[in-house]
């Protein structure tokens, strides 16, 4: 292993045979290089064509390019065998950081090409990558590796968990295209719920996403000029949720209607039982002194005489 100072132009950046990281945030590294320079040389090997193929250090190289540097410190690794060179790159990175699901997917794609023996890959590398040692996960990661770059970017930016990324691979390309603008404005929790609901609705009804998202109600929302993209996503998410859980949604609506009818004051909160499972309604109110307390008591007495409120206790009938 030799330490060299090489021209970045001499790196064959089109040769990505050892690359498994495609999405990075360079911000911190740029600041660090500006302040103290590059402290950790990249790893390269020699192959035909341009003299050097990058083994490890893509992020550092892109940061140096961003800073218009022309050369970079590199260790030249003398390794002719691609498999062994890849393992070197893999272990070098593995020792210093955790991989995200996109990197794991790329690693497995590369290993699949290099090793061919999938059981061996599962047994040797899945424990390193914190993946359950089971071939079905191999299939999932390979599908993720083949997703379009636009989706990979979303998975990276939203830090999407594996099962959501897996659901995405189960939608066809057209459906994914349709979904992309709808999920971009949503935060992670809402995005998770939206994709899960769509996935399950599609499984339950056998409908494609196109069919699910083409109801007149949803179309009128998506075509509205008065709504922002976030408002559209929120409304469509809510419509999909109602379609996925019609009974629970109708109970929620019925509860909210009853509360509205009772015209409760803002100081009193009336909560439904959790999933209507334990039958316990709760009433909470806040106060800061004796007088406020007495006022709440009077209000509660008024509520107790309100017949319309009693419909809440009659239970929810599954039609």
């Amino acid at each position: 292993m030799k330490l060299l100072d090489i021209l970045i132009d001499d790196l064959n950046l089109a040769d990505e045979r050892f690359r498994f990281s495609y999405h990075f945030d360079l911000k911190k590294l740029l600041i660090s290089i500006k302040k103290i320079g590059l402290t950790s040389p990249v790893l390269v090997v020699k192959r035909k064509g341009l003299p050097y193929v990058v083994l490890s250090g893509w992020k550092r190289i892109f940061a140096c390019l961003e800073l218009s540097q022309v050369s970079i410190s590199a260790f030249l690794i003398e390794e002719e065998d691609d498999s062994r060179a890849f393992f070197l790159s893999l272990y070098e990175n593995w020792a210093s950081r955790d991989f995200n699901i996109l990197e794991k997917a790329e690693i497995l794609l590369k290993l699949n090409g290099l090793m061919k023996d999938e059981r061996k890959i599962v047994r040797e590398f899945f424990p390193l990558l914190d993946i359950p040692a089971n071939l079905s996960y191999f299939d999932i990661f390979l599908k993720i590796a083949h997703l379009d770059p636009s989706w990979k970017k979303v998975i990276f930016q939203k830090k999407m968990p594996l099962h959501l990324a897996q659901f995405l691979t189960e939608f066809n390309r057209d459906d994914r295209e349709r979904l992309l603008p709808l999920i971009l404005p949503l935060n992670m929790n809402k995005l998770k719920q939206f994709i899960e609901d769509l996935h399950e609705l599609s499984k339950k009804t056998g409908e494609s996403l196109k069919a699910i998202l083409s109801t007149p109600e949803i179309l009128s929302v998506s075509r509205s000029d008065n709504l922002s993209s976030l408002q559209k996503s929120e409304k469509i998410r809510s419509l999909v949720r109602t379609k996925r859980y019609p009974t629970l949604s109708s109970w929620k609506k019925s509860f909210e209607t009853s509360i509205k009818k009772a015209q409760l004051s803002k100081e009193v909160d009336f909560d439904s039982p959790s999933f209507y499972e334990d039958g316990q309604f709760s009433v909470t109110f806040s106060l800061h002194d004796k007088e406020a307390f007495q006022k709440r008591i009077v209000k509660l007495e008024e509520l107790g005489a309100d017949e319309s409120l009693f419909s809440l206790f009659e239970g929810f009938v599954d039609e």
């Binding site: 079905s136 399950e200 499984k203 019609p246 629970l248 999933f275 499972e277 239970g315 599954d318």
Partner: peptide, 27 residues
């Protein structure tokens, strides 16, 4: 994963007091 054709898990379930998925009590 094992029974991709079953639709029974896509009914409406709630998280019960024990954390298990169950049909809502009225059902």
């Amino acid at each position: 994963k094992r029974f991709p054709n079953t639709k029974k898990i896509y009914e409406e379930f709630i998280s019960g007091k024990d954390g298990k998925m169950r049909y809502p009590k009225p059902l």
